[in-house]
Write a protein that binds this DNA or RNA. Sequence first.
DNA 1: CGCATGATTGATCTAACTCAAAAGTCGTGG
DNA 2: CCACGACTTTTGAGTTAGATCAATCATGCG
Lengths: 223, 223
Amino acid sequence: MSLSANPLTSIFTNGPATWAASEVPVTNLPRLSMHFTAERRLYTEGDAARSVYGVTNGIVRTCQFLSDGRRQIDAFHQAGDFFGFEAGNSHRLAAEAVTDCAVEAYRLSDLETFCLHNEKLRRWLFGQAMTAMARVQEHSLLLGRASATQKLAAFLLEMAERSDQETMVELAMSRQDIADYLGLSIETVSRTLTVLDRDGLISLPFPRRVILRNRRALEKINT
Amino acid sequence: MSLSANPLTSIFTNGPATWAASEVPVTNLPRLSMHFTAERRLYTEGDAARSVYGVTNGIVRTCQFLSDGRRQIDAFHQAGDFFGFEAGNSHRLAAEAVTDCAVEAYRLSDLETFCLHNEKLRRWLFGQAMTAMARVQEHSLLLGRASATQKLAAFLLEMAERSDQETMVELAMSRQDIADYLGLSIETVSRTLTVLDRDGLISLPFPRRVILRNRRALEKINT
DNA sequence: CGCATGATTGATCTAACTCAAAAGTCGTGG
DNA sequence: CCACGACTTTTGAGTTAGATCAATCATGCG
């Protein structure tokens, strides 16, 4: 670890690129591989929090519900992401499969044992938790203060960022999912995408496929 | 640590009430006491993240800014709260004094050193970070899906919860701060409070003093 | 082919925003 | 103690972005 490295980086995250985000830095750590079909629920709000989960394939959403049945999606998790961290002993968010997906569950009791003597694992775990937190904070700004157009532009850029493709994004989630992620109605999501299409910022060959035609302009919307 | 305790609790947080939330479980941990007058900025978005901070007195807000100058307040921190955790090596949020306040800064380099051999400190630190995350997630639900009335009701209950008084809340922050926390305009905040007053759910002897007259009804608003 | 589901489009409504003014609060100094 | 000015909060009037309600248009699929 170089002296110039920020101490926070060394406590809370891995050193620069020491570990791929998706890799747990302990090979013999016990884990349980599971897979779920689309729309299957992994756990519900209030369930005991006994494990954290790493996505290896597909997309998982974590969400909260209001009493009237409306839903707030906090995050979409894809291969390499970890979720299920909780402050208390039960899950405050439900987790559901957006697509067919594969996840690995790490029991907290195992993590506890391994963390005791493995500094790398501790740092890695901290790093995952902090990354999750940064995402939620970024998301808050969007929810609180952005217009529908800004929300959609930011969403598309986020999805492009997280995909391997440069300009083409295959959306794994429905319009309803997008709406619940951005705090909009499904109709507004649809209309806003249509407008972005008409204005030449994107094109929508199929409902789930988005081509970013003018990334510069999309970025400018949130400026 | 009892066997029935959730493993997460034991990794990420302190055992039940082992430490007051406000206490760092290491007495000889170096810290720097600082105080700030109201509206003073502790650090800005983008500043190097070299410390985490614990509030000992007064109120601090952490916030983000949009390019048009509008502001999203992520959280208000009071005595016993810790803030400044970051995933990267720079602060993504600015921190500002709402009132005159006293904070203690813990250098990350010191924390790193002490964490290496102190399991209690590690758990405590994890717990603080996870608690902060839970708050942000709770806040997201409010920002994304709640009406102005629901936002204000939840805000007042949160403030009452966090104060020592049962039914009286002295608001440390201005209407503008509340608006920026809830993603509303200042006028809507004011109007909504007036309506809650007229309907007998609260009373407002002074702009900054709120008496909860009907807590049951306030809770029901978000149900 | 016909039905179910998801997405788009249209028409209308409304909650919250904006702009503007009045009222209240507080600190300062005579 | 009161008067003044600066600032904060409340109230009013009008506008609008996004929601809601409703219909139409795809896209699969048995």
